[in-house]
């Protein structure tokens, strides 16, 4: 009885337990197993054999994988800076008081409500060669439709994909920056004004340092999101033409469907490393910067 009483009074020490158990079972445990599987030639049929780092050696000789790494990195390097730039500009514009501010914020966020898969289908309809929405619009306005096969070659298709991603998730980045802007005490700006600093100066010396927490969240989530992209690409180009716009995540899925389980999991581990390394470098850099300020 006394033990029960004691337990009841100290129940708060166990309040993290449900979350830990859930996450442990559905994430940590499979992750640990995944590391094991990536060291085997598992193919879903014969018994898996331990082959050490062979999958990783194969990865570095896999031309298709190299192309996928290039595409994935291209997509991320295009997306993350643009998302932050436009998200920040949008937040600056929508932070000022005007009528209908809340409405516009909600509308700007709305594209993020649509699943990237459906978004990919919508843009496919707009951009289809010879019969898409944009093609007909250009034709009817007599603006010329030359070179309208935007999805037909790898480079323009990748640029289109970056554009769609930035345009869809700019609202999400904006919300995080808006939250940061709203936590800046107004007195700071007043002090700055008394000192005679202009808008640009106060932006550089007050606004940007004060939203550093938002910058952290946005950059990290954008790195993660863009390096693991797959739905929008599947819907828009399906990785094509050929494998020319395939991302690493799509490759992982396709290897899975092809029963190359061991190899697929090894590629997944490479993707994990590709995400965690830039995130750590960025966090170290920004924490040092923050310390200096």
């Amino acid at each position: 009885m006394i033990i029960l009483r004691k337990l009841w009074n100290n129940l708060h020490l166990f309040m993290a337990l449900p979350a830990i158990l859930l996450f442990g079972l559905f994430f940590i445990y499979p992750l640990a197993q995944g590391i094991g599987i990536s060291l085997t030639d598992s193919n879903g049929m014969s018994a898996p054999r331990f082959i050490g780092l062979q999958n990783f050696v194969d990865f570095f000789h896999d031309a298709r994988a190299k192309k996928d790494v290039y595409n994935t990195v291209f997509f991320a390097i295009g997306s993350a800076p643009l998302l932050n730039l436009f998200g920040f500009l949008y937040a600056l514009i929508l932070d000022r008081p005007f009528k209908g501010k809340g409405f516009v914020r909600a509308v700007v966020y709305l594209p993020a409500v649509i699943s990237p898969l459906i978004m990919g289908y919508v843009w496919y309809f707009i951009l289809q060669p010879d019969r898409g929405f944009l093609y007909h619009l250009l034709e009817n306005l007599h603006l010329g439709t030359g070179g309208s096969d935007w999805l037909g070659n790898a480079h323009s298709a990748l640029i289109v994909l970056v554009f769609i991603n930035v345009w869809q998730f700019v609202g999400m980045t904006m919300i995080i920056y808006l939250a940061g802007l709203q936590s800046i005490p107004k007195e700071l700006y007043e002090a700055c004004e008394i000192d005679g600093a202009g808008y640009m100066k106060s932006l550089w010396y007050i606004t940007i340092p004060m939203v550093v927490q938002s910058i952290k969240i946005n950059v990290v989530t954008n790195i993660i999101g863009s390096l693991s992209v797959f739905e929008v690409i599947m819907a828009l180009t399906d990785g094509g033409p050929g494998y020319s716009t395939e991302s690493l995540s799509i490759y992982i899925l396709r290897m899975l469907y092809g029963s190359f389980t061991g190899y697929s999991t090894a590629v997944a581990m490479v993707l994990f490393a590709m995400i965690i390394i830039p995130v750590f470098i960025f966090m170290r850099y920004i924490n040092k910067k923050e310390f200096e300020m």
Partner: peptide, 21 residues
């Protein structure tokens, strides 16, 4: 801290062991 690190791991990479589970 563990949760913060795991935030960086895309769910797709655990698909195979998750399927077995």
């Amino acid at each position: 801290n563990l949760l913060l690190i795991c935030m960086m791991i895309p769910a797709i990479i655990i698909t195979v062991p998750l399927y077995t589970l």
